[in-house]
């Protein structure tokens, strides 16, 4: 994002953003503004907007195919929005001259399928980013990786390969890997959807700890009890559109829109 700073054309924008940030303090730490995206003719995101403060937890819910994951991926530019803007900590993420690799250092991501590096031990999975992206020394990177694995309760599995870990352990390594980059924001893309039911708890526990530590988290999940417990705001997406958003107690207990109520009913009947 330093590219944007050094670009004189972007200065006017950057100043305006800085003013915005100064006025609002931690307000609008992440600001998603009118994001639209198409795959071919099919519109997958339609004017999606929401904001998060620093330390907030926002949970995106919605039926499959509603664009939740795509929305998440637009934030770290794994997917490109065609319209709209996203700002993180006052800087425009969606600007064409943003260095995406630099952006991704600051935005951690946890995947549904874990996507651990299959040829690396748990420790090396976590240490790879610090080593190769942050250019830390081998010792510093290992130390940081150790600390993060300990944080997710896997200090005793540092030398295990992904194939030797349970699904829950894999996902905790995945979280540690993202945390090791010391991100400003963590994105969770259905982190428990690929897990056996008895393994979901250990991952949610780690996520609860992160919330307690004040991590800013944008989470796509179907774990409604988790959402209710930790979310500052719930955003309900359907067919690429924000149908309704609000604090969990309001959205879950008194949804304004009929579509929200129907979706929640359907989810509840499966619990």
């Amino acid at each position: 994002m330093s590219d944007a700073d050094s670009n004189p054309d972007a200065d006017a924008n950057a100043d305006a953003d800085a003013n915005d940030a100064a006025e609002s303090g931690d307000r609008d730490y992440l600001r998603v503004a009118d994001i639209s995206k198409w795959y071919g003719d099919e519109q997958v995101l339609d004017d999606v907007s929401f904001e998060m403060d620093r330390g907030d937890v926002t949970v995106l819910i919605g039926p499959s195919g509603s664009g939740k994951s795509t929305m998440l991926r637009c934030v770290n530019r794994l997917a490109e929005a065609q319209e709209g803007e996203i700002f993180l900590d006052g800087e425009e993420v969606t600007a064409p001259d943003v260095d995406v690799d630099e952006l991704r250092r600051e935005v951690g991501m946890v995947f549904q399928d874990f996507n651990l590096f299959a040829h690396l031990t748990a420790l090396d999975n976590v240490a790879l980013g610090p080593r190769r992206v942050l250019d830390l020394s081998e010792a510093e990177a290992d130390e940081r990786a150790h600390a993060q694995l300990e944080r997710v309760g896997l200090a005793d599995q540092t030398d295990s390969y992904p194939a030797e870990l349970s699904g829950g352990q894999k996902q905790r390594v995945g979280i540690a890997r993202a945390l090791a980059m010391e991100p400003k924001l963590m994105l969770f893309d259905e982190p428990t959807s690929a897990l056996d039911p008895e393994l979901i708890g250990e991952v949610l526990e780690v996520m609860h700890d992160l919330v307690a530590d004040g991590m800013t988290m944008l989470v796509v999940t179907h774990e409604m009890s988790f959402a209710r417990a930790v979310a500052d705001e719930i955003v309900f997406l359907d067919e690429g559109r924000v149908v309704e958003r609000g604090p969990p107690e309001q959205l879950f207990d008194n949804p304004e829109k009929e579509r929200t109520a129907r979706f929640l009913d359907r989810i509840a009947s499966h619990d």
Binding site: N76, L78, D101, E102, L103, R104, R105, G108, M109, F111, D113, N115, L116, F117, A118, H119, L128, G129, R132, V133, R177, A178, M181
Partner: peptide, 29 residues
């Protein structure tokens, strides 16, 4: 797997770095 490349990109490795550090060590095996 495609996800290996995505995961590498997601921690801020460039495409070439991801190929070198993630894809090739697996592919060559």
């Amino acid at each position: 797997e495609e996800g290996q490349l995505t995961a590498g990109r997601a921690i801020g490795l460039s495409k070439v770095e991801t190929i070198y550090y993630v894809v090739l060590p697996q592919g060559l095996r």
